[in-house]
């Protein structure tokens, strides 16, 4: 799931200041689940902007709409017609969703309502953690189902850095357990688990974002 973080209300107010009529578009998928771009959050944002604009001169108007998945052009097909009535679109989708809308609508600006952060999963109610950086070369089979690249701040693939504190917490993010401790604990849990001494070969980073913009093949396999 893609996790986002709402932009601060001051930034949003500043961004929307030049516009009088604003269409606020939420996303009904990942950003709803991580509570940053669903119906609840966009309705609060719309009212917050309205409250801030109460004392400013000129009429002001917002309209809220939720798209099931903003990154799907077919699901956004109602938006261009609606956008004619508005001066700007404030999108609460991820960067992929915002750009989908930007591709569809060239007449008015698209403003980002959230900062897209990472691909992750829930660890607690309203708390998410990164699980993947999209390196393009998955090796979790060699590390007992743990992505060492995304879950270790130093991306240590073959040994721990040794900087964890006595309680085995990461020296970069003390809220988290050192992922190498998690890895070592899992080693004995399953018969036939991988050997910690096995060397993981250097990664081919050309498959990651470092190798340029990635896309699926032009002619995907059937």
């Amino acid at each position: 799931m893609i996790v986002g973080k709402p932009k601060s209300i001051e930034d949003i107010i500043e961004m929307t200041r030049p516009y009088r009529r604003i269409l606020i578009v939420g996303c009904g998928s990942c950003l709803t689940v991580c509570r940053t771009g669903g119906g609840r959050e966009i309705s609060i944002a719309a009212r917050a902007i309205s409250l801030a604009r109460l004392n400013m001169p000129g009429a002001f108007e917002t309209h809220e709409i939720i798209v099931q998945r903003q990154c799907e052009p077919e699901l956004c097909e109602d938006i261009p017609a609606m956008a004619r009535e508005f001066d700007a679109i404030l999108s609460f989708g991820c960067a992929a969703g915002m750009q989908t809308i930007a591709d569809l609508i060239r007449t008015i600006p698209i403003l980002p309502g959230i900062d897209t952060q990472f691909m992750g999963r829930i660890v607690d109610h309203r708390r998410y953690i990164e699980q993947c950086i999209g390196c393009g070369d998955c090796t979790i089979d060699q590390s007992e189902g743990i992505c060492l690249i995304s879950r270790c701040p130093k991306a240590q693939q073959n040994e721990p850095c040794g900087g964890s504190d006595p309680a085995d917490h990461c020296e970069v993010n003390p809220d988290l357990e050192c992922v190498w401790v998690t890895f070592a604990r899992r080693l004995g849990e399953r018969p036939g688990s991988v050997s910690i001494s096995k060397i993981i070969e250097p990664k081919d980073w050309s498959r990651s974002h470092a190798g340029g913009v990635r896309s699926t093949p032009a002619e995907p396999e059937p």
């Binding site: 009904g28 709803t32 689940v33 509570r35 669903g38 119906g39 609840r40 959050e41 309705s43 939720i66």
Partner: peptide, 13 residues
């Protein structure tokens, strides 16, 4: 019918 679910639902469903 306390309404806590409706107040917390991020999708307002």
């Amino acid at each position: 019918v306390c309404g806590i679910c409706a107040a917390e639902c991020p999708a307002e469903a």
